[in-house]
Design a protein around this nucleic acid. Sequence first.
DNA 1: CTCACAGCCTGTTTGC
DNA 2: TGCAAACAGGCTGTGA
Length: 273
Amino acid sequence: MPPELPEVETTRRGLAETLPGRVVRSLLVAERRLRRPVAAGLARRIEGQSVRAIERRGKYLILRLDSGGLLIHLGMSGSLRLVPVDEPSRAHDRWTLVFTEGMTLRMHDPRRFSLLQYSARPEDDPLVRDLGPEPLETPQDALARHLRARAVGRRGAVKAFLMDGRVIAGLGNIYANEALYRAGIRPGRASGRVKTAEWARLTAAIHAVLEDALASGGSTLRDYLGVDGRAGLFRLRLDVYGRAGEGCRRCGTEIRGLRLSGRGSYYCPRCQS
DNA sequence: CTCACAGCCTGTTTGC
DNA sequence: TGCAAACAGGCTGTGA
């Protein structure tokens, strides 16, 4: 399961418990060829700086330093672990950020879709500047109005609309499918044909499914150091994602699967219209 | 501007 | 049984 907003937020909370105040000793890059090449001068730029805060924007983590900060994205297969400095690295470990007091932050990312980049002003970086509103931190009525306004005249599938980070930040394929199920809206419906009352239901559904997932992800927080950060999300009961051919939990009808914009999409033909 | 799709990438699943 | 093709999807760039 790819890291989505709840897992990134869970990771953020774990890092926020440990990293603030620590000083960057070095950065060891085992593989520069990630989503973008890791800049050659990155290590020198951040060595000696201390971590001020750990923030999140969409699925991006921002490690705020004395000057500027690091933008980190987990991509499809990335995970971050806090490990002791003498912990041997495993296959697919891509970089290790070494802090004072023997603590390190290590990126494990088999598919190399992750990203590590310095920005003098992370919040203004093009990677995060154009992201839409945060689904968990925007008042629901404002978010519903925003989505409705952005959808006017659009004929593309509402699921693809929800996955467009410039429309709303942090929603991936799994939660877009799940939120649409909870709201009773088929994923292939044209965005412009979603009614006002449905936007309200959808906004509430997005909020609920992300909070549910976050509550599950949070269960691993306590032993974050020893546990892969994603373990907690297995506890999220998926209603439709990956369940084509199985029964709808509400009415028993077979869940249908189709492809929208090249992505697996799932819905209950009876509960969703 | 909107939308669909290719490409990036590798571990896992599917199908012959 | 074994191996190749398909699949998984966040994000970007391209072209219609």
